[in-house]
Design a protein around this nucleic acid. Structure first.
Length: 432
DNA sequence: TCTGGGGTCCTAGGACCC
DNA sequence: TCTGGGGTCCTAGGACCC
């Protein structure tokens, strides 16, 4: 059996941990650039605020209802997320971290003790709440897709926990779930399935496999259908345990992309922005113990403009050897950026994607690239860089290519709470 | 004036290779 | 009458997730 633990209104709940006065009142958290609403308290949901609603449109109503509004504070959310995962790992050796606020837990050891499962799930929820202060829902079922469904239904239960142990319970859950609400069915397939006359998840499960393969994107749909029948098709990918922290992560890409505060066309400004994004992505790479073989640079024009044609332009470079070195990655990125830019075009966003990932230190050396001595020096440089920026704040030490100031292109982030658990240096200054 | 970011998997055409 | 098959890489896009 698999449990899915999902934090309720996660970003709002994180803000509440450090500002208890936010309990019981409507709260929302904005996306990067203060663009749209991405987390809402129950009170804000009850007032009709929608997920993804543009902030500038919602603003008058937010004021009218005296809703507390926060820019997103990822250092805070990331840290609380790690604390939640640490608590969860006390309940099973195998935690598959699905997102910042959701983890799957392998409860295989409980297969023959069904009645205990619900009590165990309730204990997980209670412990996370007591130790971290974040409320959760727990769904338990034989597959990830059914666990998601159980979790969804648990939100409506008083105990916030639901177990689908028997096939009768699973069938009842399938009937109680709209087909469009199944994990893996998005807007497009939701509409399509309804037009084909399916209403509930049970209707979908009852269709023949061939029909599902034809109408639901081939193998992807078949996997989903199998999972609804209780046959696991999605990998369970457990996180590295605390006693093996060096095990490299299995992710396939690392990205850093941002919208600008205002459109940019000057190549120098765009270069500095991209160099900054490379630095962020490379830090993430090193944090995960990875090196990248492939680098993609992208720039984007106005996504919401009605004009035809592509909105995103990408250029891919394959590096001679996989690397996590900011300098090497920056050179490659800026070289490709120059080829990508068109004079006079206003770009609204840019970014860097690193892929072809392999464990750092295991990378094949190139015959004509760096010597082991150079490599070692660069590694030492990067670990000093990370140590300094970890202590004094990001970009305390940076490459000159990233420029001295980001004020030209930085996004808006005007309503941010302090880094309560992470930013000791600045927090000390604030208090001083 | 103002609409996010980071992921996953899959498909498809063109260019190129043997 | 009859014109292969198996690959890679690049770019772009679709669909989905949180």
């Amino acid at each position: 059996m698999i449990a899915l633990v999902d934090c309720n209104n996660f970003y709002v709940s994180c803000e509440r941990v450090f500002q208890p006065r936010l309990e019981g009142v409507p709260v929302v958290v904005l996306s990067n650039n203060d663009g749209c609403l991405i987390s809402r308290s129950d009170e804000a949901k009850a007032l009709g605020f929608q997920m993804g609603e543009p902030y500038h449109l919602a603003r008058p109503r937010l004021r009218e209802h005296n809703v507390r509004v926060f820019s997103s504070n990822y250092p805070l959310y990331g840290d609380l997320s790690r604390r939640v995962i640490r608590v969860l790992s006390e309940f099973t050796p195998e935690v598959d971290v699905y997102s910042i606020d959701e983890s799957f837990l392998n409860l295989a050891g409980f297969r023959y003790h069904q009645p205990d499962l619900a009590a165990y799930a309730a204990r997980i929820r209670k412990t996370v709440l007591e130790h971290v202060g974040i409320p959760t829902c727990v769904g338990v079922a034989p597959t990830k897709t059914l666990a998601k469904m159980a979790n969804r239904l648990a939100k409506k239960q008083h105990e916030r926990v639901l177990t689908l142990g028997t096939s009768e319970q699973q069938q009842a859950a399938l009937q109680a779930t709209a087909v469009a609400d199944v994990w893996g069915i998005g807007r497009r397939y939701g509409h399509k399935l309804q037009e084909l006359g399916l209403t509930t998840a049970a209707d979908l499960a009852a269709m023949p496999e061939g029909w599902v393969r034809r109408h639901l994107g081939g193998v992807v749909g078949v996997r989903l259908w199998q999972e609804l029948h209780g046959r696991p098709c999605l990998d369970f990918d457990p996180e590295a345990l605390e006693d093996e922290p060096d095990r490299p992560s299995r992710r396939h890409s690392v990205a850093h992309t941002r919208s600008f505060g205002r459109p940019q066309s000057a190549p120098t400004v765009l270069s500095e922005a991209v160099a900054s994004f490379v630095a962020r992505a490379a830090e993430k790479l090193r944090r995960h113990g990875l090196a990248a073989h492939v680098l993609t640079v992208l720039v984007g024009t106005d996504r919401h403009a009605p004009t035809a044609g592509p909105k995103t332009y990408t250029a891919v470079t394959t590096l001679p050897t996989a690397t996590d070195d900011t300098g090497t990655l920056t050179r490659a990125a800026l070289h490709r950026l120059r080829q990508l830019l068109r004079p006079g075009t206003a770009y609204h966003r840019a970014g860097v994607v690193l892929s072809g990932l392999e464990p750092a230190g295991q990378a094949q050396l190139g015959l004509f690239t760096q010597t082991p001595e150079q490599l070692l020096r660069n590694q030492q440089l990067m670990s000093r860089l990370d140590a300094l920026n970890g202590r004094f704040g990001k970009d305390a030490v940076r490459y000159a290519a990233a420029g001295l100031s980001n004020e030209q292109w930085a996004g808006r982030r005007q309503l941010c709470s302090p880094g309560y658990t992470t930013d000791w240096y600045n927090l000390w200054n604030i208090r001083a």
